[in-house]
Amino acid sequence: MEFFTRLEAEALKFFNLPQSDKDKAGPPDPFGYGFKKIGSNGDVGWVEYLLLNTNPQITSLKSLTVFRETPEIFRSTVNDYIQAVKRMTFEVVELMADGLKIEPRDALSRLLRDEKSDSCFRLNHYPPCPELQALGGRNLIGFGEHTDPQIISVLRSNNTSGLQICLRDKTWVSVPPDQTSFFINVGDALQVMTNGRLRSVRHRVLAESMRSRVSMIYFGGPPLSEKIAPLASLMAKGEESLYEEFTWWEYKTSAYKSRLGDYRLGLFEKKTGGAAGQ
Rank of each mutant, 00 (worst) to 15 (best):
V85N: 06
V85Q: 01
V85T: 03
V85W: 02
R87Y: 01
F90S: 08
F90M: 12
F90P: 05
E91K: 15
V93P: 07
V93C: 09
E94G: 08
E94S: 03
L95D: 11
M96I: 15
D98F: 03
G99C: 14
G99Y: 04
P104R: 06
R105I: 13
D106M: 02
A107G: 02
L108C: 04
S109M: 11
R110F: 00
R110H: 12
L111Q: 13
L111I: 05
L111P: 03
L112C: 06
R113E: 14
D114S: 14
E115P: 05
E115Q: 13
E115V: 04
S117W: 01
D118M: 13
S119F: 06
S119H: 07
C120I: 01
F121P: 08
R122N: 08
R122L: 14
N124T: 10
N124I: 04
H125A: 11
Y126T: 06
P127T: 08
P127Q: 10
C129R: 12
C129Y: 11
L132D: 03
L132W: 08
L135E: 15
L135A: 14
G136H: 04
G136R: 10
G137E: 05
G137R: 10
G137H: 04
N139Q: 14
N139R: 15
L140E: 12
L140S: 07
L140T: 13
I141H: 00
I141Q: 10
G144A: 15
G144D: 11
G144V: 01
E145C: 06
E145N: 09
E145L: 01
H146A: 05
D148V: 11
P149Q: 05
S153E: 04
V154K: 05
R156Q: 15
R156S: 12
R156F: 00
R156I: 12
N158I: 03
N159L: 00
L163K: 02
Q164I: 03
C166P: 00
C166V: 07
C166G: 01
L167Y: 00
R168Y: 04
R168S: 14
K170C: 09
T171G: 00
W172G: 06
P176L: 09
P176G: 05
P177G: 02
D178T: 07
D178C: 15
Q179R: 13
Q179V: 08
T180E: 15
T180R: 11
S181C: 14
F182P: 00
F182T: 03
I184S: 03
I184T: 08
V186Y: 05
V186T: 13
Q191A: 08
V192Y: 02
M193T: 09
T194I: 06
T194E: 03
N195R: 03
G196N: 07
G196Q: 09
L198P: 03
L198R: 07
L198F: 15
R199A: 07
S200Y: 08
V201H: 01
R204G: 02
V205T: 10
L206N: 08
S209Q: 05
M210V: 11
R211E: 14
R211I: 01
